[in-house]
Simulated assay, not measured.
Amino acid sequence: MHISTASEELSPNEGLPRHVQDMIGRRLDELFPAVADADPETRLGQVLLRLRAALLDAQAERQVSKAFSDSLIAAVPRLRRFAMMRTRSAAEADDLVQATLLKAWEHRSRFQAGTNLVAWLFTILRNAHINQGKRYRREVRDVDGAFAAALTSPAEQEHRIGLIELQTALADLPVEQRETLLLVVLEGLPYEEAALVLGCQPGTVKSRVSRARERLSQILGIA
Results as ranks from 00 to 15, higher is better:
184 V>Y: 06
134 K>Q: 07
196 L>Y: 09
144 D>S: 11
190 P>L: 08
107 H>A: 11
20 V>A: 02
124 I>H: 05
193 E>Y: 08
110 R>Q: 15
105 W>C: 02
150 A>D: 09
141 R>T: 15
81 R>M: 12
67 A>Y: 07
55 L>R: 00
45 G>N: 05
99 A>D: 12
218 Q>C: 05
144 D>L: 12
38 A>W: 01
81 R>P: 10
30 E>D: 13
14 E>Y: 03
63 Q>N: 11
192 E>C: 10
34 A>E: 15
139 E>I: 06
11 S>L: 11
137 R>C: 12
53 A>W: 13
156 E>N: 01
17 P>N: 04
152 T>R: 10
121 L>G: 02
19 H>G: 03
176 E>Y: 14
196 L>Q: 12
192 E>M: 13
113 A>K: 11
45 G>C: 06
124 I>T: 07
219 I>Y: 06
6 A>D: 02
187 E>F: 15
41 E>H: 15
111 F>W: 15
130 I>V: 15
18 R>E: 07
84 M>E: 06
156 E>A: 00
98 Q>A: 12
24 I>W: 00
44 L>S: 04
151 L>G: 05
13 N>T: 10
150 A>L: 11
95 D>V: 14
124 I>W: 05
97 V>K: 00
131 N>D: 12
172 D>V: 03
107 H>P: 00
73 I>T: 13
113 A>M: 07
132 Q>Y: 05
144 D>P: 06
189 L>Y: 09
182 L>E: 03
163 L>G: 01
14 E>W: 01
196 L>F: 11
222 I>W: 15
120 W>M: 02
212 A>C: 07
65 S>W: 08
212 A>N: 01
185 V>Y: 01
82 F>A: 09
128 A>D: 10
3 I>V: 14
156 E>P: 00
27 R>G: 03
47 V>N: 09
164 I>G: 01
138 R>V: 14
14 E>T: 02
146 A>I: 04
53 A>R: 15
155 A>P: 00
13 N>I: 06
80 R>F: 07
210 S>A: 12
4 S>L: 15
161 I>N: 09
27 R>V: 06
85 M>E: 10
122 F>K: 01
161 I>F: 08
49 L>Q: 15
86 R>W: 12
39 D>Q: 02
62 R>M: 08
22 D>F: 11
185 V>T: 15
194 A>H: 03
91 A>P: 02
216 L>M: 05
80 R>H: 09
99 A>Q: 09
194 A>N: 03
110 R>E: 15
63 Q>F: 13
165 E>N: 14
196 L>H: 12
84 M>T: 15
120 W>S: 03
220 L>Q: 08
125 L>E: 02
25 G>T: 07
181 L>Q: 01
58 A>R: 04
40 P>M: 04
85 M>Y: 10
96 L>S: 03
146 A>Q: 03
194 A>D: 02
55 L>M: 14
142 D>V: 12
150 A>K: 03
43 R>H: 11
27 R>W: 07
91 A>V: 13
